[in-house]
Design a protein around this nucleic acid. Sequence first.
DNA 1: AAATCTCCCTGTAGGC
DNA 2: TGCCTACAGGGAGATT
Length: 271
Amino acid sequence: MPELPEVETTLRGIAPHLRQQTIEQVIVRDTRLRWPIDPAWVESLRGQKVLGATRRGKYLIVELTRGALIMHLGMSGNLRWVPLATPAQKHDHVDFIFTNQRLLRFTDPRRFGAILYTEVAALLHPLLADLGPEPLSANFTGEYLWQRARGRNQAVKNFIMDGKIVVGVGNIYASEALFLAGIRPSKRANKVSAAHYLQLAAVIKTVLANAIEAGGTTLRDFVGGDGKPGYFKQQLHVYGREGEPCLRCATIIKAQRLGQRSSFYCPHCQR
DNA sequence: AAATCTCCCTGTAGGC
DNA sequence: TGCCTACAGGGAGATT
């Protein structure tokens, strides 16, 4: 399921062939994504040139001559290059065809994903305007996390999964980062020490960077912009390992639901 | 303001 | 084999 590393992997896969290309045609087979796709702006895409592609949190932004596409992969989405005229399969909802005869295809079985168009600066869009810092940027630090945690009584796992605090940390990497930092997921955010937040910020950066390096985590059906799966699953320490021994101390990994999400931790390594 | 809850959706796994 | 149910989860929006 796409978290920040999977979105970054997608971006890196699609970006090289996007730049300076002109949209020739957009085929929408199903408008029913997170928000319905509006046929009015779909038509306005024709003839627009791609100025660049970026990422903000888990949102992909494709800057065009007169606006920008904002895309989200949701739970099960992927965006990848396929050979022109590849027959559309079930859940292949949108095709972008460029004048160089390349085909960018958006697939999303669960349809939690989104494709939006904005004529103002994408970063000012309501969905993006209030997002927290990028975890891999220099202004995301342990000091910042500790400051934001003052007065926060929620579980630290939910705290770091809040996009207003920091973007891109989803359920898998939150569990992994808390394991690597030795912090129990259920610990109240305002009870975590400043020293532990320094650790936490550092491991969030490394776990995300390593996952990007591995091409993301493919649990079931994720593929990057080049259509290939990611290999970070092999490096997961606790996620999905309930009942199995901790890789560090052999204590049995436990699962616990926090904020309607399953969380995994080692009772011995994480306090 | 902060925290929690509900909902959107389909594929898969497990029980019978 | 098929039917049924539970579960997975990003995150916006509503509610507490």
